[in-house]
Design a protein around this nucleic acid. Sequence first.
DNA 1: TCTATGTATTGACGAGCATCAGTTCAATTG
DNA 2: CAATTGAACTGATGCTCGTCAATACATAGA
Lengths: 117, 117
Amino acid sequence: MSFDLELAPKHKRAPGERCCEPVVYPDVERDQASRMAEVAKALGDPIRLQLVDVLRKHAGKVCVCELVPLFDISQPTLSHHLKKLRAAGIVDSERRGLWAYYYVKPEALKELSTWLS
Amino acid sequence: MSFDLELAPKHKRAPGERCCEPVVYPDVERDQASRMAEVAKALGDPIRLQLVDVLRKHAGKVCVCELVPLFDISQPTLSHHLKKLRAAGIVDSERRGLWAYYYVKPEALKELSTWLS
DNA sequence: TCTATGTATTGACGAGCATCAGTTCAATTG
DNA sequence: CAATTGAACTGATGCTCGTCAATACATAGA
């Protein structure tokens, strides 16, 4: 397949000359990139991504013990994944007695989503 | 802060009864989740995320040697990151003589972007 | 062909990750 | 209080990651 890719011609630099000077810079600042990368990293596991998918659509309806049988992992492992998602600021939880209800925080995915589109 | 979170009440199960049956399932299928997680994982590093940001906006304008000074990493490390992005199907490259031009593949981020929004 | 230069690969190292078995903690129920 | 149950924590293991120094490869220019 072919793309509309104009290649800027380069020429070999003269001996001793500095290597190509950067001509462009990222529009995304370092700390913004770090924030978005942190979210992306947390979503970079199939189980966590599906967890977010479930929690986004069924917030408040599922407790952890209902999530466990959806995946072929142990309960401590699931708990570990939920902890990672919470550390990335994607989900939060509310406890009611013995049960813990997780939900996706509003705005949590917004920055990354906006940048992606 | 408070959310509009309706909690489905749970009750302790009778002794010997099966633990909570799952009531919901992910809408995202396993292989779709794997594909998106792979893309998200590749974006889960600040340098790679900024690389994608630059390449998306300046495709064909930059060679690898111009990307190196943008980040505090060595040239082999940058090459390694570009390889990861290519393995995830996010970027591809074209070679012209000594220089390699990378670009973000169209549609590469679409699935994840759509799911996120 | 020989040298210089842009890019990719290799090998190695420390750090972090996903996972589980075992355990702990908290809260409900009898 | 004692037993039970949902959820989180601990420690350990094998794997992957990000990084660099060193090297290899490919091409341009003399």
